[in-house]
Design a protein around this nucleic acid. Structure first.
Lengths: 134, 134
DNA sequence: CTGCGTGCAAATGCTTTGCAAAGAC
DNA sequence: GTCTTTGCAAAGCATTTGCACGCAG
């Protein structure tokens, strides 16, 4: 089923700028965030192009979508080790967390088969936490 | 900060039908799912009314929003013990799971403060799993 | 050159809102 | 009877798509 060769795509300034945004920030980005970062390199980059490239990169396998409650889809570079995320309620940014839970011992109903899991921690990141500590 | 008394709302057939959908299914429902269930009791119920009531019930505190990757927001009855969810990739339904992970030992970056977590297991529910076992 | 990728604007599709009529109390 | 809630249709928004032009290969 899996396509052995990814579809060839051209290297455009727009695509490179978008790709760079993910590499340089190292955290999941929303289409809007990706647009902002990439626009620093390609000024008149349009949001439509960002959406098209995000979609293409997901299909190619270089990005994976990540979702946080009540937020639009974020995307992050693929190929990383199994990990989870931290969502900052202050700056509304997603961060990557190393590691995973020791073992998932949740009771599954009879006949249910689990194939994976997703875990998100919520709170305040280092930059936002102090404002609550005053 | 917390409002000591919830806002009074009238008991309409529509509202009761929507509320019943959550009680009777016992699982998180999307606005569309809630509409379908409730329409069995109130035939010409409109989706706008469902949205309005879901929003009102969340504000009242009787429902809480739950989100699953790539899916529109689901809602479930509030007041339940801490629990997590199972997402069936087959029927695209959310189920409630009892229990939680023993302890979360994820490394948080310096200064990050965690206030909560969310865990979702993915797979096939009892009804959908057999079709993959053939 | 050839044709894919882009920007713009129009088109979706889900969710919200305005308004007159129906219904709760 | 009064004031909230509803259904319908229109409005909003984020995302997607059509199209002619520009650029990569």
């Amino acid at each position: 089923m899996a396509r052995s060769m990814m579809i060839e795509t051209r290297n455009t300034r727009q695509k490179n700028a978008i790709r760079a945004a993910f590499i340089e920030t190292g955290r999941p980005l929303s289409p809007e965030e990706a647009l902002h970062y990439a626009q620093q390199k390609v000024r008149n980059l349009s949001i439509a192009t960002v959406y098209r490239n995000l979609k293409a990169m997901v299909e190619e396998g270089s990005l994976v979508p990540v979702q946080f409650p009540g937020e639009s889809t974020r995307y992050e570079a693929s190929g990383k080790a199994h990990h989870h995320h931290f969502w900052c309620n202050g700056c509304k940014r997603a961060y990557e967390l190393e590691g995973c839970v020791p073992k998932l011992s949740l009771k599954l109903p009879r006949g249910f088969r689990s194939l994976g899991h997703e875990l998100v921690l919520y709170g305040m990141c280092a930059a936002c936490a102090p404002s609550y500590a005053s």
